[in-house]
Design a protein around this nucleic acid. Sequence first.
DNA 1: CTTGATGCAAAACGTTTGCAAGTTT
DNA 2: AAACTTGCAAACGTTTTGCATCAAG
Lengths: 141, 141
Amino acid sequence: MNKSYTHKRLTEVGLKVTQPRLAILKILVESKEHPTVDDVYSKIQKSHPGISLATVYKTLETFTDTSLIKKVGSRESSIRYDARQDSHSHLICIKSNKMLDFHDSELNLLIEEYIKKKNIDNFEVQNIEVNLYGELINQKY
Amino acid sequence: MNKSYTHKRLTEVGLKVTQPRLAILKILVESKEHPTVDDVYSKIQKSHPGISLATVYKTLETFTDTSLIKKVGSRESSIRYDARQDSHSHLICIKSNKMLDFHDSELNLLIEEYIKKKNIDNFEVQNIEVNLYGELINQKY
DNA sequence: CTTGATGCAAAACGTTTGCAAGTTT
DNA sequence: AAACTTGCAAACGTTTTGCATCAAG
């Protein structure tokens, strides 16, 4: 039997495999931007019109609790999610509010090593997030 | 006449100097954490009970527009504000949700130079934000 | 006096919750 | 069959808005 990646991930973390969960996780895994709850809900409506907004909220919460996804920091009022497991930075366009991944292992290492060297008092760093705010050039909004 | 720092800052950016603005800006300038709207409102109530929540919202918006303060990225749903002008990082405690400044010019330089060297295509970096998520040690919650 | 800021209450928006019905294991 | 997930609608918390009143330049 041909199990999808999303199916595997759900069983791995001990969650029941349901249509809503498969669909929502698929969107997150495939997304290069960092969808808000509403982004996910809108996309879901096209392929799975039955799934409710409450389910999207609950599912994203469950996924975060089981570390399938992470919440990412944002200057807007709505939370954004990310299914990538490796640490990486973000390019955030202050004009369009788009948030793109910026994978650069050299930068990650640079910061990680620096932080390790510093050995900050009273704080145990678990996760580093670098956000580069600025403007996307040659974009149509 | 003895003009306060907050008074000066307001006139510098061309805003009328009012009691609510002076009080709100003072709180932001003196705060080491990164208050949410509600944090600011609660503090204001003690010294200036008349000021309304709507005024706090409007004032923080105005301050952001005039660059007196900045919004900072956060994984929670409420936005946080910061009056510091120099670039700096944040230590964010995932247990208590506290967000503390982490001033380290060496780290800022390190990242700034790296980014400059990289010359990212299609993106003009204006502002760098480093968030270190982890746990405050020896804290009572 | 003119312009802009404030307070109030209502509206809009985003998120959470309880529970009955439906699915997965 | 037991345990968990979903959808609905209501509740909740946060942010925005319009307008009449008030304060600053």
